[in-house]
Structures are given as structure tokens and as C-alpha cells.
């Protein structure tokens, strides 16, 4: 039944991403095997698991940077294996992507880094200025728009990367270990920012191997291990004020041992 559903298109019209028995092999090694799930529009999903479990592969399959060896990946109604290569850039304009290492252009200002994403897709100058101003204000960096990336802290650089990912108003935001290089206070700020983005209706997929972060999540958590999806649970949505925060652990004995 699931097979028919995927082949005929998603049953739930709100479904934005679906994986159907996806297998991904690099030469002889399976990076993912038999992964099936679907994500609806506006969801916030945390993908967790140890390093090398296949989290990044899931994200790269969504951006169609990789293609499944078996099974199907459907993003916004488009089946990756049946999609024309020339259409992929247009799909990517609807997906924002942030990484652990920020991937900013070091020789360009904060403003130019964000505007670059608009320039590439051909947004006229007036609209570009308005959009860059909107997202840089949203991430709290409009007043630092003329700085170069190396003049910013790690957290600020990640906020620039998020602004760049959001400037084209994507339907999906993929965050691959976005807090991996950040201290707990800054990491919490980034997570809060991602929650705010999700509140605006953007579907967010957040990948992390950090258990502490996962513990604070009152959202859907998918666990990937050895290339397989081992659990997929919808946690109780907590009131943001009552949810545990990453910064709490700084006062816990186990953290002090480190």
C-alpha cells in the first residue's frame, strides 16, 4: 500500500518529503538501507544518530546531491530518480541548507554572502536589498552587514549561513550538525532561531549526533543507526518556556567532569 501511495504521489497532500525503501550504496558499502519515512509541511524533525550513521546522506538525498540506489525519494512531489538534471537547481531554491562549517565566502561581507543566494537565482536588485535586510534583521546581524565572516564569532557566522539559506524563502530548511562547532549557549541560540523559522511555516530538518540536544527536543525525533532508521517518534510538544535548555547542562555534574 505504501508503495502505491508513493508511486501515485503522496496520500497526504501536506507531505513534503517522503523516502520509500531507500537504499544508498557507495561502491560496495551500504550507507543507507531500507529507509522509509515521510515528513509533512511545517514539521520540525530532528535526525540523530552516531557519526557516519547516514544522517548527512539523508539530507543530501533530499537536495538531490545524491540519488538512491534503490527505492524512491520524493521532494515536493518530484521523484529524484525521474527528475531531469536541469530541474534540480530549481528544486534547490526551495531548500535551504546549513552546515557545521558554515561554508561562507570568506572574501565577501555578511551582506554579500546573503545577497549571493539571491543574485544566483536572478532576483532584481531592489527586491534583493529588501530580502537581505529582512533575513539579516531576523537573525540579528543587520548592524554587522559590512563585516567579513572572520570578524564574526562562530555563532554569528552560523546565523549568516542561516540567513543565506532563508533569503530565498525556502519551504524546507536542512541543518546538518549546525551546532557542532558551537558552545552550548550559542548552540541553544541557533536552535531557538531554527524554532522561530519553523514557527513561520518552514519545515526544518535538524541533524545532530549530540544527545544533549536531542533531550531538549519536544518534537519528532528520528534515530538513524548503521544506515537504517531505528526509531521515529513524535515527542510531546513542550511549551518552549518549560523545555529543558542546553545551557542547563553546564551546571550538571556530568558536564563538570569533562
Amino acid at each position: 500500500m505504501a508503495a502505491e501511495a508513493i508511486q501515485k504521489g503522496p496520500l497526504d497532500p501536506r507531505t513534503i518529503i517522503s523516502f520509500y525503501h531507500v537504499e544508498l550504496r557507495y561502491r560496495d558499502q551500504a550507507a543507507l538501507s531500507d529507509v522509509t519515512f515521510s515528513i509533512t509541511n511545517g514539521e520540525f524533525v530532528c535526525i540523530t544518530g552516531p557519526s557516519g550513521a547516514g544522517k548527512s546522506s539523508v539530507l543530501r538525498l533530499i537536495t538531490m546531491d545524491l540519488f538512491p540506489t534503490k527505492g524512491q525519494v520524493v521532494v515536493r512531489g518530484m521523484v529524484s530518480t525521474k527528475m531531469k538534471r536541469s530541474r534540480i537547481p530549481h528544486l534547490r531554491r526551495e531548500i535551504g541548507f546549513v552546515f557545521q562549517d558554515f561554508r561562507l565566502l570568506e572574501d565577501r561581507s555578511v551582506y554579500d554572502n546573503v545577497a549571493f543566494a539571491q543574485l544566483v537565482v536572478g532576483v532584481p536588485k531592489a527586491a534583493r536589498i529588501k530580502n537581505v535586510m529582512r533575513v539579516l534583521t531576523q537573525v540579528g546581524l543587520w548592524n554587522k552587514r559590512d563585516r567579513l565572516p572572520q570578524q564574526l564569532s562562530g555563532g554569528e557566522q552560523q546565523r549568516v549561513a542561516i540567513a543565506r539559506a532563508m533569503v530565498n524563502s525556502p519551504k524546507i530548511l536542512l541543518a546538518d550538525e549546525p551546532t557542532g562547532n558551537l558552545d552550548p549557549v550559542t548552540a541553544q541560540e541557533i536552535i531557538d532561531l531554527l524554532f522561530r523559522i519553523n514557527d513561520g511555516g518552514t519545515c526544518v530538518l535538524f541533524s545532530t549526533h549530540d544527545h544533549e540536544i536531542v533531550k531538549t527536543f519536544g518534537r519528532r525525533v528520528m534515530v538513524v543507526k548503521d544506515g537504517g532508521l531505528v526509531s521515529d517518534e513524535q515527542r510531546r510538544v513542550l511549551d518552549r518556556d518549560q523545555a529543558p535548555r542546553l545551557t542547563d547542562r553546564m551546571y550538571q555534574p556530568e558536564v563538570q567532569r569533562d
Binding site: D65, S86, P89, R93, L105, V120, V121, R164, N168
Partner: peptide
């Protein structure tokens, strides 16, 4: 970055 944000070939 161009590929990431959807630049055409």
C-alpha cells in the same frame, strides 16, 4: 555555494 543555493549549470 552556487550549487547549494540553486544556480543553474
Amino acid at each position: 555555494v552556487q550549487m547549494l543555493v540553486g544556480a543553474t549549470d
